[in-house]
């Protein structure tokens, strides 16, 4: 299975540099068309397993939708969503034997095709005729996240952008009505940002694998164990 190393992966010391993975016919065709019609608007373009990920300039975002629909024959909109690259809050302990909570890295790293900052919007479109798909990524300004809306080209973008707005706080210019989709009207905050805490976990952390209840016939062991675990 061909594997491409993301830009942030550590360089392997013992393995020789791998040859770039062989591209499929579809991937080559997509890359060629992207280069032809978008050209400079594409900052970075990476084949990812069987798809292509293209990071584009923010002001080219509406043009990307047109190019995808007309020149790439991508008539099917899969989704539009966002991603917050800030490090995840601390859940588990790195050195403990309790493995029931994930321990995420504490430094900010970016994924495939990189990113200019914390926020990105990514969208996936597919072609029902040619059976290929492309993921487009675009960087958003952290202080004032704005990006153009895809509703004029793909009417299905309506709900995806509304969801993105209430989950992340991104504003889509040109959207007919960016009102909340999922959350009640008086909800405060943007849940999918990494700095939005899950209060239930803050109030009482997940106990994990630790078995705090002793067996019924061991009252003293229960007392000492509950002391040790608190």
């Amino acid at each position: 299975m061909p594997d491409e190393t993301p830009p942030d992966a550590p360089v392997a010391e013992t393995e020789p540099a791998e040859a770039p993975p062989a591209l499929s016919v579809k991937q080559e065709a997509v890359l060629a068309r992207l280069a032809e019609h978008l050209g400079d608007a594409v900052i970075e373009c990476v084949p990812l397993f069987t798809d292509v990920v293209a990071r584009v300039q923010p002001d080219a975002w509406p043009r990307v939708a047109d190019v995808a629909k007309e020149h790439l024959d991508c008539d099917y909109l899969s989704f539009i969503s966002g991603i917050d690259w800030a490090p995840a809050p601390k859940e588990g302990d790195e050195g403990s034997s309790d493995t029931s909570s994930p321990v995420q890295p504490t430094e900010m790293t970016f994924g495939v095709a990189g990113s200019a900052g914390r926020f990105q919007v990514f969208a996936h479109v597919q072609s029902t005729q040619r059976h290929w798909g492309v993921t487009f990524k675009v960087d958003l300004d952290e202080a004032d996240p704005h990006i153009a809306s895809w509703v004029p080209v793909y009417p299905g973008a309506d709900w995806h952008e509304r969801e993105c707005r209430e989950m992340f706080g991104f504003v889509f210019d040109g959207h007919p009505s960016l009102r909340p989709l999922y959350l009640p009207a008086d909800f405060e905050g943007h849940p999918l940002r990494k700095d939005f805490p899950l209060l239930a976990r803050v109030v009482k952390p997940w106990p994990g694998l630790v078995d705090v209840e002793a067996m019924p016939s061991e009252p003293e062991a229960a007392a000492s164990e509950s002391e040790a675990s608190t």
């Binding site: 999922y182 959350l183 909800f187 849940p191 939005f196 899950l198 209060l199 239930a200 976990r201 997940w206």
Partner: peptide
């Protein structure tokens, strides 16, 4: 009690 979504931001526990 909220079930598998005990820590969700939108579920009544």
């Amino acid at each position: 009690c909220g079930g598998p979504y005990w820590d969700s931001y939108s579920v009544t526990k």
